[in-house]
C-alpha cells in the first residue's frame, strides 16, 4: 500500500512533465495537422537553457531559492519560445500548403539538427547538476518503508497546475485564444474572417515551446542530470500521451500525460524497468488501433 502510494506520487509528478510536453504536440497538431517531430528536442533545449541559467545564477550543487527558480523558469521559457518560433519560421512555414510529407521530413530534419546542435554546442557528456531543491516530507511509514513526497515533486505539481491554469485561461478567455480555436476549427475560414493565421500559428509554436521549457526545467529539477538525447524518448512518450488523451484535446493531453507517467512508474515498480519503454509504446499502438480518437478526442466519421 505504502509502496503503491509512493509510485502514485512518482507517477503523477512524471506524468505532469509528459502532459506539459503533450500540450505542445496537441496544439500544433490541432492547428496545422502535423506532428511537430522536433518538439521533444525543443523540450531538451528548454532543459539546457534552464541548466545554463541556473549555473549563471550560481545555483550549481546548492539549494535554490524560489526567486532564483522563477528566474530559471522564465529564462528557460523565453529562450525556448524563441527556438519554437524559429523552428516554425525556418522549417515549417515555407512548406505550408505543400505536399504533406514535406513538413514531416523537415520536422525530422529539425529534430536531428537540434539534437546535434546541442551536442556540438554543449558537448556529448551528461550534465549532472546535483539537487537544486533538496528535502521533502515523509507522509507515512509502514514496515520500514517511508513514503516520501519530495519538495521537487510538490514543486512540479504546483508549477504545472499553475502553468496549465494560466494556459487554459489564455485559450478559453482571451481574444487570442478564440482566434487560436477558430484556426483549429477551420484555418481558411478564420483567414477569411481577418485572423492573421500565420501569426496565430507562430503563437501556437511559441506557447507550445514555452510549456515544453517548463517541462524541461521540471525534468532538470527532478532528475538533476540531462543530456542532448533526452528529447527523443520524452518526445515520443509525450506524443503517446497526446494521442492517448485524444489529439487536439488540451485536457486530453494532460490526462494522457498523467496516465503514461503512472503506467510507466507502476510498470517499472512491479514488472520490469528494462521494458518500461515497451509498455509506453505498446499503449501507443493499442490506443491508436483500438481507440484512434483517444479518451477525450472527437470521433471522426469517414465521409464518403
Amino acid at each position: 500500500m505504502a509502496y503503491a502510494l509512493q509510485q502514485l506520487i512518482n507517477g503523477v509528478s512524471l506524468g505532469m512533465i509528459y502532459g506539459l510536453i503533450a500540450v505542445g504536440y496537441t496544439m500544433v497538431y490541432g492547428i496545422i495537422g502535423m506532428i511537430n517531430f522536433a518538439h521533444g528536442d525543443v523540450f531538451m533545449v528548454g532543459a539546457f537553457v534552464s541548466l545554463i541559467t541556473a549555473l549563471l545564477l550560481g545555483l550549481g550543487g546548492g539549494a535554490a531559492g524560489p526567486g532564483a527558480l522563477l528566474l530559471v523558469l522564465l529564462a528557460g521559457m523565453s529562450v525556448t519560445a524563441l527556438y519554437g518560433w524559429t523552428v516554425e519560421r525556418v522549417a515549417y512555414r515555407p512548406l505550408r500548403g505543400s505536399f504533406r510529407l514535406a513538413p514531416l521530413i523537415s520536422a525530422i530534419g529539425m529534430s536531428i539538427l537540434l539534437q546535434n546542435y546541442v551536442q556540438v554546442a554543449q558537448g556529448a557528456r551528461v550534465k549532472p547538476t546535483g539537487t537544486l531543491v533538496p528535502g521533502g516530507v515523509t507522509l507515512m511509514e509502514t514496515d520500514g518503508f517511508a513514503v516520501q513526497f519530495s519538495y521537487v515533486q510538490m514543486l512540479i505539481i504546483v508549477v504545472t497546475l499553475a502553468v496549465l491554469a494560466g494556459f487554459t485561461v489564455l485559450v478559453t478567455r482571451t481574444p487570442m485564444g478564440r482566434a487560436m480555436r477558430a484556426c483549429e476549427q477551420d484555418r481558411k475560414m478564420a483567414a477569411l474572417l481577418g485572423i492573421n493565421t500565420d501569426r496565430i500559428i507562430s503563437l501556437t509554436f511559441v506557447i507550445g515551446a514555452a510549456l515544453a521549457a517548463v517541462a524541461g526545467c521540471m525534468y532538470l529539477l527532478r532528475y538533476g542530470v540531462i543530456d542532448f538525447y533526452i528529447g527523443f524518448l520524452a518526445g515520443v512518450k509525450a506524443f503517446t500521451a497526446a494521442v492517448l488523451g485524444g489529439i487536439g484535446s488540451l485536457p486530453g493531453a494532460v490526462l494522457g500525460g498523467l496516465l503514461i507517467g503512472l503506467i510507466e512508474t507502476f510498470w517499472s515498480a512491479y514488472f520490469s524497468a528494462q521494458y518500461k519503454d515497451v509498455a509506453a509504446f505498446s499503449i501507443l499502438i493499442l490506443t491508436l488501433v483500438l481507440m484512434p480518437s483517444g479518451l477525450l478526442g472527437r470521433q471522426e466519421v469517414e465521409k464518403v
Binding site: 539546457f48 537553457v49 541548466l51 545554463i52 550549481g60 529564462a75 524563441l82 554546442a121 550534465k127 549532472p128
Partner: peptide, 24 residues
C-alpha cells in the same frame, strides 16, 4: 537579434563538467 537570442545561451555559455559539478 533572433540569432543572438538563440545562440547566446546555448553557444555563448558552454557547460563543462569539472571537479565537483559544472562550470560555465
Amino acid at each position: 537579434l533572433v540569432a543572438f537570442g538563440l545562440f547566446a545561451p546555448l553557444v555563448g555559455l558552454r557547460t563543462d563538467v569539472v571537479e565537483g559539478g559544472l562550470a560555465l
